[in-house]
Design a protein around this nucleic acid. Structure first.
Length: 834
DNA sequence: CCAAACCCGAACAGTAACTGCGTTT
DNA sequence: ACTGTTCGGGTTTGG
């Protein structure tokens, strides 16, 4: 079937596809066309990765647009949203417009209603439905990418409910679901009233095998000798073998999947020995350049470790990396500059990074709930293997699992290679999932009675899969009760019908996309802070029945001395001291503006208290306590318990107390960030990567913004509290102390530059507009372009830096002894102005 | 002859990943 | 389960 022979597509699309090299549709694509996707038929396509799924979706969407409709493409990851958008934008030449919407990025100002194709994450779509985006009604085609993720216990229910809602709003909606090959694609097709196209066909051959001894044993019975030196390592031998085997004129790169971040890093370091010896001089130069870019991304150990691995031609990839790190690595790997990437599952399902050879080194991963090392799901291993083989570049792809014994080899064949992926099973019928979706369903008017709600839920995959309808009902009842008690919904009997309505707050919570439990936690905390009677706060904070309460009065004693131990030379009081002297030098009263703002409240609402509050909601992913942390944070808890909101659990209530401390740990990470503690210090102190810090900050930002809205809407929370929340939010957002908030709000000024400007006597936007340019330039390390941009953003009439000579004296004081920090990368340390 | 450097094995600790908001001050 | 790190004891090495 030739693309140009297809009817129903916008003019020129068929020819354009052929010009791209699509001479003939792949069999699954042809099957999809036969199933009627060009005429608006719904379809489930369960086919391997990289077998042309996206084109199936494109054909459906483009024909829908040609008929005057509008299409939505739902992706599981934000990174995929931008990737898909870029891909679809090639149709703009044919008059098809594309937009994206994710949590952190909306299409450039252009209102989505005017776009023909919209790409969004499932959560974003859910949120758009809740907020009543007008164009939702106009949709005629929806594509759900990686639909097998409905199986995911956290995010699956959202996808499931969202698809059900979209189909409910628009009964004629064409639904195209793209899935990996799973055990029960037919069930998904049933649920979506769709045709099913199922196939194992792949455009490039994929050979899967197990390496054991000195050879890979492939699934087709063939073998390939790959010798491992005595005491040598299988992975290294396989990576070397791939590199030494020229196919298309080059050796092949490898993607190695391992089960922990640490393993990824150490494997990359080791494999660097293999790749380094096979680099050309040009590659070495380019890699050095890439390494220096990587180092500039963030001033952390992770960053330098990554850079040094990359210099050898190997890299690691995991969620602890900053997103800039990740995309640099992904791009360089695609360009074949980086020869080998050692990754955690981030890369298995994420953006498209194929390799000639995939090595699944670890097939078990630690799982606390499971109580040890749990074998990976078949589906997950298949997804990893599916990354092997780059269409158009590699003649074939190879996926290799590693075995150290003949028994293991047999097990791997049985467990993964011959095995079919697990069936997809809905995870909807659990309280956390239903809590949020029941509220949203009621709030956005999809149901107004208990029966209506159950009827709506009957359209979900769960309902078509379960034979225990009572379970969904009983969980729903529990959830309704919870929502009523917390004031998010009202239940009223009129005659024999019970009506459900969302309260004002209920609506707000639904629109803010909060888990109702998070909202309840935040509301309680804020109310408590504002409640009359700050005096009996000790009552709230007594560690009820633990025997600890007696210490309540003497806790202050630990202040000042407690900081030294766990963190070596550094302590929070050091930061305070540093920043205060800093503020003093700047000639400002660096103290207590925060206190003034909150003095009307019944009790002081401090950033730490608020960070702790949002950190213990179910919407924040927990930071785990490591050994020794328990003592550290117990001590911190005693020192600062007056700042914390809500009732601390008893120290004998092990689980809850640990959670409380873990949230405190997260809270202090945020406080450190908002106090200008260096990124590398934070990563070191909390044992996380730069990517984790960014993630925590982002979450806190979002939740505090939501808290601010709640604080305004809810009874019993006063205006001072709103201000305190806002300030705490802005401080994490910019990562600065209070006195820098004004400066850091200017585009182009981050936490480091703000501090330097401040130390140079430029303390506000107004100062920026009026200060001597020489001083500004000096504070910005003589970077003229940067200085001009900043002045422009600050609204200065004449931002030009032409002919201005930097006044170094201004910044000299602030940067004493760090002459080497002239690279403009903005890596000032707190220590620099101590 | 003694102390510092070095080496080895045992004991121990730690363990993947993802998305969510709203325009006002 | 597995790996990387730490720690302690014993050995080697250098002055």
């Amino acid at each position: 079937m030739k693309p140009s022979s297809l009817s129903g597509l916008p003019a020129g699309v068929g020819d354009a596809l052929e010009a791209e090299g699509v001479a003939e549709l792949y069999p699954p694509q042809a099957a999809a066309v036969e199933a009627g996707i060009l005429e608006g038929e719904s379809l489930v396509a369960a086919v391997p990765t990289a077998s042309g799924k996206t084109l199936i979706a494109e054909l459906a969407m483009l024909s829908a647009v040609e008929r005057g409709g509008k299409a939505l493409y739902i992706v599981p990851l934000r990174a995929l949203a931008s990737e898909k958008k870029a891909e679809f934008e090639r149709w703009e030449d044919h008059g098809v417009t594309v937009g994206v919407s994710t949590g952190n990025y909306d299409s450039d100002g252009e209102w989505l209603a005017t776009r023909d194709i919209i790409v969004a994450t499932s959560e974003k779509v859910d949120s758009l439905v809740r907020n009543g985006a007008p164009w939702i009604d106009d949709l005629t085609c929806v594509v759900s990418d990686e639909v097998h993720l409905v199986d995911d216990s956290h995010r699956g229910p959202t996808l499931e409910v969202t698809l059900a809602k979209l189909r409910r709003v628009n009964p004629g909606l064409q639904t195209v679901a793209l899935s990996a090959t799973v055990g029960n694609a037919d069930v998904i097709a049933d649920w979506l009233d769709a045709e099913l196209v199922e196939s194992d066909w792949r455009p490039i051959d994929l050979r899967v095998g197990v390496h054991y001894g000195n050879a890979i044993n492939f699934d087709d019975g063939s073998q390939r000798e790959v010798r491992v030196d005595r005491g040598g390592d299988q992975t290294a031998a396989l990576v070397a073998d791939a590199l030494d085997t020229e196919a298309d004129g080059q050796g092949g790169s490898s993607l190695v999947f391992v089960n922990s971040r640490r393993n990824a890093e150490s494997a990359a370091r080791r494999l660097g020995e293999v790749t380094a010896s096979r680099l050309t001089d040009d590659e070495r130069d380019e890699l050095r350049e890439l390494a220096s870019e990587l180092r500039d991304v963030s001033d952390t150990e992770t960053s330098t470790d990554l850079a040094s691995a990359v210099e050898e031609g190997a890299a690691f990839h995991h969620a602890g990396l900053a997103s800039e790190h990740r995309s640099l690595i992904e791009d360089a790997f695609r360009d074949r500059l980086v020869k080998c990437v050692c990754a955690t599952p981030t890369l298995a399902a994420g953006v498209n990074t194929p390799a000639r050879r995939v090595i699944v080194r670890d097939w078990r991963r630690y799982d606390g709930d499971y109580g040890g090392m749990k074998p990976l799901d078949v589906l997950e291993v298949h997804q990893m293997c599916g990354r092997a083989g780059r269409p158009g570049l590699d003649p074939y792809g190879e996926a290799v699992l590693l075995a150290s014994s003949a028994d293991t080899m047999d097990e791997l064949f049985d467990r993964y290679i011959w095995a079919e992926a697990e069936p997809v099973r809905s995870k909807l019928a659990v309280e956390p999932a239903l809590r949020t979706h029941v509220l949203a369903t009621v709030a956005s008017g999809f149901a107004s009675t208990r029966e209506g709600l159950l009827e709506f839920l009957d359209n979900t995959l769960y309902a078509t899969q379960t034979d225990d309808a009572g379970r969904l009902e009983s969980v729903t009842d529990r959830v309704l009760e919870y929502l009523e008690i917390n004031g998010f919904i009202e239940r009223e009997w009129s005659g024999n019908r019970e009506t459900l309505t969302a309260t004002g707050i209920g609506h707000t919570v639904s629109r803010l996309y909060l888990d109702p439990m998070s909202a309840a936690t935040m509301i309680d905390g804020l109310r408590e802070a504002c409640a009359d009677g700050g005096d009996d706060r000790s009552a709230d904070y007594a560690f009820s029945g633990t025997g600890v309460e007696g210490d309540g009065d003497g806790i202050e004693t630990s202040e000042g001395e407690g900081d030294d131990g766990p963190f070596g030379t550094y302590s929070l009081s050091d930061v305070d001291a540093g920043a205060e002297t800093g503020a003093g030098a700047g000639g400002a009263n660096g103290e207590s503006a925060g206190e003034e703002k909150t003095e009307g409240a019944a009790r002081e609402l401090t950033p730490l208290g608020l960070y702790h509050l949002v950190s213990r909601t179910p919407d924040t992913y927990e930071l785990y306590l490591k050994s020794g942390d328990r003592e550290t944070y117990e001590e911190l808890l005693y020192e600062r318990e007056e700042e914390l909101l809500g009732d601390a659990p008893s120290a004998y209530d092990d689980v809850n107390f640990e959670d409380w401390l873990a949230s405190l740990k997260t809270a202090r990470l945020l406080e450190d960030w908002a106090s200008e503690v260096d990124e590398d210090r934070i990563t070191e102190r909390y044992g996380v990567g730069p990517g984790d810090v960014r993630g925590k900050v982002e979450t806190a930002e979002w939740l505090l913004r939501a808290a601010e809205t709640l604080a305004r809407d809810v009874e019993g929370v006063d205006g001072d509290a709103v201000l305190a929340v806002r300030e705490a939010r802005k401080r994490v957002e910019y990562g600065v102390r209070e006195e820098l908030l004004d400066l850091a709000g200017v585009r182009g000024i981050g936490r480091k530059r703000a501090r330097r400007l401040y130390e140079a006597g430029i303390e506000s936007r107004v100062d920026l507009r009026e200060a001597e340019k020489a001083v500004v330039l000096g504070a910005l390390r003589g970077r003229e372009r940067t200085a001009e941009r900043i002045l422009e953003h600050a609204g200065r009439e004449d931002p030009s830096m032409e002919g201005v000579r930097a006044d170094r004296s201004a910044s000299a004081a602030a940067t004493a002894g760090s002459a080497s920090d002239e690279d403009g990368s903005g890596q000032a340390n707190l220590g620099d102005f101590g």
